[in-house]
Write a protein that binds this DNA or RNA. Structure first.
Ligand SMILES: [Mn+2]
Ligand SMILES: [Mn+2]
Ligand SMILES: [Zn+2]
Ligand SMILES: [Zn+2]
Lengths: 126, 126
DNA sequence: TTTTAAAATGCAACACTATTGCGTTAATTT
DNA sequence: AAATTAACGCAATAGTGTTGCATTTTAAAA
């Protein structure tokens, strides 16, 4: 694995994601960071965090990618089989780490990643 | 419900989607249509087809939206609880209409839509 | 501590997907 | 055939994400 360095941007972005109850988009992170770094740097830091297994990506129903903390992925491959909930009213995306769906897939398919997203109204908004 | 008209573009796009074994993106549809209409028209037709319950959207793992035929949605609300498979090699996105995941969601959540996408290698590519 | 290698950054340009406004065209209804 | 308005084309704009390259910064080696 490639050597990575700890920088201010990386530390700040990681803290932001880890202290957030909901998944964050690039735009939301940029907003919160108050120009401590360039927007391209944010994209690159996020890529690194995903690479290192510290953060995982969620493709939201509108196609925008959100990022959330990983809990047991560091080092190894990501293995996220939990569901995400995207609220149509408050626009929040939440990891439901306890909710893992079951399904019967034909054996010929080789699964590398999963993306389960429900959308509707979250408990606060319904 | 609003009145809709049958136009050449709509007919062609619908035929294209219905005769395809895989879900199609806007770009792929435009490619196949050979400039019979403007690219904006394709977006608008796709919106209408979704609205009418003839076609459903799939958000692919890269954030690009793909479109596939609906089988039992016309008129009513969309109710797609089947899984989609996105092949990392041939880039195809396939509806697995028989594969419906089961999960236990806390009751406070009100689900309107579901988006289940797996990525990896399809039978042809693995 | 100073030197050094290369990881990380800033900035500008670019690519791709999708949306909006508005004047014009064409599908239905009468 | 005339009237209504859904649908269209075109140009402009917005949003998200990527790439190239010169410069800065980190962390390890000397
Ligand atoms: Mn998650
Ligand atoms: Mn489908
Ligand atoms: Zn909400
Ligand atoms: Zn394939």
């Amino acid at each position: 694995m490639k050597i990575t360095r700890n920088t201010i941007a990386k530390t700040e972005i990681r803290n932001l994601i880890n202290s957030s109850k909901v998944a964050l988009s690039h735009a939301e992170i940029q907003q919160a960071l108050n120009n401590i770094c360039d927007r391209v740097t944010i994209y690159r830091v996020l890529d690194r965090l995903v690479e290192e297994g510290l953060v995982h990506k969620i493709v939201n129903v509108d196609g925008v990618i959100k990022y959330a903390e990983c809990h047991e992925c560091a080092g190894e491959h990501h293995h996220h089989n939990h569901i995400h909930f995207s609220c149509q009213k408050c626009k929040s995306v939440t990891c439901l780490e306890d909710v893992e769906p079951f399904f019967n897939l034909p054996k010929q398919y080789k699964v590398m990643e999963m993306n389960f997203t429900l959308s509707g109204l979250c408990p606060q908004c319904s």
